[in-house]
């Protein structure tokens, strides 16, 4: 027997898919994580921004040298994080980073291949700081800051590289 597909349900699916495309992608709560033994009590939004721009290289209060860790740049949390914290993304971020790195100002964050790799790196390095979807956090890392998805976050700046 041939099953007749319901034309109205196909249309509904198409409509739903179109709607989903139009809706902004659901944003995750992002956890900023450090090594479990990191003595740092808290971190401000401004300090976090400076860390990922490479303008702060020691943990506040005479702490250790910081090693920032990035998710891959094709990971949705990467873009979410950079838009909300660093206020730079896309080409502007790339140009800023090229300038920063090749003018001898310092290193760029090391890239973890996945949230799991990020957790592994944070667990092994007392100077590490990373970020990931709060749902992926395990006891191997200490959450020093949470970026709630309710926060509107500032739009990325359209600035030139600096």
């Amino acid at each position: 027997m041939i099953v007749q597909r319901n034309p109205s349900s196909a249309l509904l699916n198409l409509l739903l898919a179109t709607l989903l495309l139009w809706l902004p992608a659901a944003r995750a709560d992002i956890a900023v994580v450090v090594h479990p033994q990191n003595p740092l009590a808290s971190l401000s939004h401004q300090e976090l921004k400076k860390i990922f721009l490479g303008r702060l290289s020691l943990f506040p209060g005479g702490g250790r040298e910081i090693r920032a860790i990035d998710l891959p740049d094709d990971h949705p949390v990467f873009h979410d994080f950079y838009r909300r914290v660093v206020e730079l993304d896309g080409i502007e971020l790339k140009r800023y980073r090229a300038y920063y790195l090749f003018s001898g100002r310092g290193r760029l964050p090391v890239v973890a291949t996945s949230p799991q790799a990020m957790l592994q790196m944070v667990a092994e390095d007392p100077g590490a700081i990373g970020y990931l979807d709060i749902k992926d956090v395990t006891e191997n890392a200490r959450v020093i800051m949470t970026l709630s998805s309710d926060e509107p976050g500032k739009p990325p700046k359209e600035s030139d590289n600096r």
Binding site: K94, R95, A98, Y99, F102, S103, G104, D160, N161
Partner: peptide
């Protein structure tokens, strides 16, 4: 040894990607 920081883009003079 370092690049002499004369201008805004002196330190990345050879890195064309860093300027427009």
């Amino acid at each position: 040894r370092m690049r002499t920081p004369l201008y805004l883009y002196s330190e990345t003079l050879d890195v064309g990607y860093s300027y427009v």
